[in-house]
């Protein structure tokens, strides 16, 4: 979609951040760019490069392999909620059912927000939602 005038969507916000190159690579590998460029609305938790680096060695490389596309996609979808949860709406203990159908739990204590215990470092409003920058990668719970 050719449109350089409109306010950036969640993908372009990630692309515009030097701290999210790993995430952008993952989005492209999982072919998840188009979906997140559409109307949404989305709440996206965007782990930084440092967050990905905290994963055990080789994890990211492994996930980027073609045969692991589904697993990668599942992880990425665990970072996306359909709907815009602005900071004001976040309540301590709130759960969000993510696109991959698993829940994340938000906490808000003295103005400090975490998601599954990972710190929210900042936020950016996007044309089709909101991006929360987080310092850890959210890993979906093991399937029962």
């Amino acid at each position: 979609m050719q449109d350089a005038t409109s306010a950036p969507d969640v993908v372009r916000i990630a692309v515009g951040s030097p701290d999210h190159t790993t995430l952008v690579t993952a989005l492209k590998t999982a072919e998840y760019v188009d979906a997140l460029s559409n109307s949404g609305p989305f709440t996206v938790f965007a782990p930084t490069n440092a967050a990905f680096a905290k994963l055990p060695a080789g994890t990211v490389e492994n996930l980027l392999k073609p045969e692991n596309k589904e697993a990668l996609r599942n992880i990425l979808e665990y970072h996306v909620y359909v709907g815009v949860i602005n900071e004001d709406y976040i309540q301590d203990g709130m759960t969000l059912n993510q696109v991959n159908l698993d829940n994340v739990t938000l906490s808000k204590k003295e103005g400090k927000i975490t998601v599954n215990g990972n710190n929210v470092l900042g936020s950016a409003k996007a044309s089709n939602g909101i991006v929360y920058i987080i310092d850890g990668v959210l890993l979906p719970p093991a399937k029962k």
Partner: peptide, 26 residues
Amino acid sequence: MKKLIKISCLIAVFGLMLSSCKPTGP
């Protein structure tokens, strides 16, 4: 959350880099 880093300003800087990450289109 006053300490939140608002990164949207980065978009202006990196806006020109976006072409590699556009939806596939028609």
